[in-house]
């Protein structure tokens, strides 16, 4: 019996992929055991059928970002999922932000500093929307059971998937910019020193700040980049900070822009 359980460990640690309607969803862990006080990285992957897509955190004109609901033991914390650089997916005049191929959301789970138990059970309730012309919502529950060890055992089978997922994230730059609401426009002002001199797409999160645009108005001025976007028709309130993701040839850069207080000079 105990031998059987031992044999089953790796199987339970690797929750099976879920074949849902039009998409295969899986949850992978970077390590096959977990260690007190050391973050455990997990990857929720979506592999939609050809021409179907899932969504970025700001889905654009329609659609819905995946929702992750964790059930974790006491003392554990789940950070917000990290989304790969999205693509712009036009549908007629409307534009969505998301992923037509396989994509993965990286999530950092933070265990407590002390763990007495031998195993931990982590449960994820994942909900998503996958769309082509039609949209289909999906839901799956993933249960992970991981042994607690002094040193986290790497999971070589998942190494390349995690490397790929990290590569797909927008690069975090150490710069920060500002943005302001100017009449019907959103004007983003970024220090451009560490940014590419040409940018093919601009993505703003959260939603309802700027209208999705395939060809944003960009001006490189000395060492600054000014981005003028149409204020979203459903804009209601300017948050203290927005995330600006710039994309060039598949590579993204993520830059935070804080709201420039009114009257503040540039």
């Amino acid at each position: 019996m105990s031998l059987l359980l031992t044999l089953l460990w790796p199987l339970t640690a690797l929750a099976a992929p879920v074949q849902a309607r039009h998409v295969v969803v899986d949850l992978l862990t970077e390590t096959s055991t977990v260690t007190a006080g050391e973050p455990l990285w997990v990857l929720l992957t979506f592999a939609p059928e050809p021409h179907w897509h899932t969504y970025w955190k700001n889905p654009g004109d329609s659609g819905l970002a995946p929702k992750l609901n964790w059930q974790l033991p006491p003392g554990w914390q789940a950070r917000e999922p990290l989304f790969p650089t999205p693509a712009a997916i036009p549908y007629g005049k409307q534009i969505n932000y998301g992923y037509e191929g396989e994509s993965g959301l990286l999530v950092e789970l933070v265990p407590p500093l002390v763990m007495q138990e031998e195993n931990v059970a982590l449960t994820l309730d994942a909900r998503w929307l996958v769309c082509a012309d039609a949209c289909v919502p999906g839901q799956a529950e993933f249960k992970l059971e991981l042994p607690v060890t002094r040193f986290a055992a790497p999971n070589p089978r998942h190494k390349s998937r995690f490397a790929q997922a990290r590569f797909s994230l927008p690069l975090k730059s150490d710069i920060a910019g500002t943005y302001r609401v100017q009449g019907e426009q959103i004007v983003v002002d970024l220090p451009a020193r560490t940014l590419p001199r040409s940018v093919s797409r601009v993505f703003i999160a959260p939603g309802q700040i700027a209208e999705a645009e395939l060809a944003p108005d960009l001006t490189f001025k000395e060492d600054r980049l000014l981005i003028r976007l149409n204020r979203h028709s459903y804009f209601s309130k300017a948050p203290p900070q927005i995330e600006v993701v710039l994309e060039l040839a598949g590579q993204g850069w993520s830059v935070p822009a804080r709201l420039q207080p009114q009257g503040e000079s540039q």
């Binding site: 329609s62 459903y234 209601s236």
Partner: peptide, 14 residues
């Protein structure tokens, strides 16, 4: 008090 909110759903199939 909330005259505008995010419309959510499927895209309109124009």
């Amino acid at each position: 008090s909330t005259p505008v909110s995010a419309p959510y759903g499927c895209s309109v199939k124009y």
